[in-house]
């Protein structure tokens, strides 16, 4: 894979993660446990979908294909998002834990992308980093508050952590071509992100009264938890097809129509 192909591959993976998670987050709009969270999660959803659009604009500059075409006319089995973002929204605990895991990974990844030698990626990373910081403040705060507040909240949060942890490790499955980009200091190596992510999230879980499935010192490859790999290789859960079908329903309804 040459550098240009690798860039396209990486941008699509970033965009697909953001778009699909944003889509899932927006499923709470109108249905959240309290109005404040309705507002917060609608905000997060807009940010994530907006980030997807930003990455796809860079993709467009390389390929000439616009963001709407990529997102709304591409077949679901061409997406390269990880499995974590595809999973149904579950209960509020799962949503919070998933979003926390994702935001933490974003902060680590964007920290590197802010230093990228490739200008378009660096510029977007600089712009969206502060938004992800807000997301992380919000979701981490919720993990800490719900982790051991009541017996029920603890039970639900622990179940969510156990469920989402291995799925979250799928965020760090190597993206095809990333080695080419990492060699040129355009993007970080996925294993580097994973290590820093573990160092960050495991202590937060412990502080929140939650059992972490792994120890932060285990590091890469040292965990017994199965990583949900496959998304970057276009091997998906059954959920993705449904999401993409829903998402593209109107856009594809009438050939040639503009909306």
């Amino acid at each position: 894979m040459n550098k240009e192909q690798a860039l396209q591959s990486y941008l699509l993976a970033l965009a697909d993660d953001e778009l699909i998670l944003g889509h899932r987050d927006a499923e709470w709009t109108g249905h959240a446990p309290l109005i404040e969270e309705d507002i917060a999660f609608s905000n997060i959803a807009q940010d994530e979908i907006g980030h997807a659009q930003s990455w796809l604009r860079v993709y467009e500059s390389l390929t000439g294909t616009d963001p709407d075409t990529v997102a709304f006319l591409r077949d679901h089995n061409e997406f390269t998002c990880c499995h974590l973002v595809q999973m149904p929204k579950g209960d509020w605990a799962y949503t919070i834990v998933r979003q926390f895991f994702f935001d933490a990974a974003e902060i680590v990844r964007l920290g590197y992308l802010k230093q990228s030698v490739y200008d378009p990626i660096r510029e977007i990373a600089v712009k969206i980093y502060p938004e992800e910081q807000y997301h992380l403040l919000h979701t981490q705060g919720n993990v800490e508050r719900l982790g051991d507040a009541t017996e029920e909240s603890h039970r639900r949060m622990q179940r969510a952590v156990d469920e989402a942890f291995g799925q979250a490790l799928g965020l760090f499955e190597s993206i095809p071509g990333e080695d080419v980009l990492a060699d040129e200091n355009i993007v970080p190596d996925s294993k580097t992100i994973e290590n820093e992510w573990l160092q960050f999230v495991v202590p937060v879980l412990k502080r929140s009264g939650l059992r972490s499935p792994v120890d932060e010192t285990n590091g890469s490859g040292g965990t017994d938890v199965k990583s949900w790999y496959g998304g970057r290789q276009k091997e998906h859960t059954g959920h993705l097809k449904q999401i993409v079908t829903d998402m593209q329903q109107v856009y594809r309804m009438i050939p040639g129509a503009k909306w």
């Binding site: 959240a32 446990p33 509020w92 508050r145 719900l146 507040a149 009541t150 029920e152 639900r156």
Partner: peptide
């Protein structure tokens, strides 16, 4: 959402 409001 009741458990969330109670927990918060």
């Amino acid at each position: 959402g009741r458990w969330v409001r109670e927990a918060l």
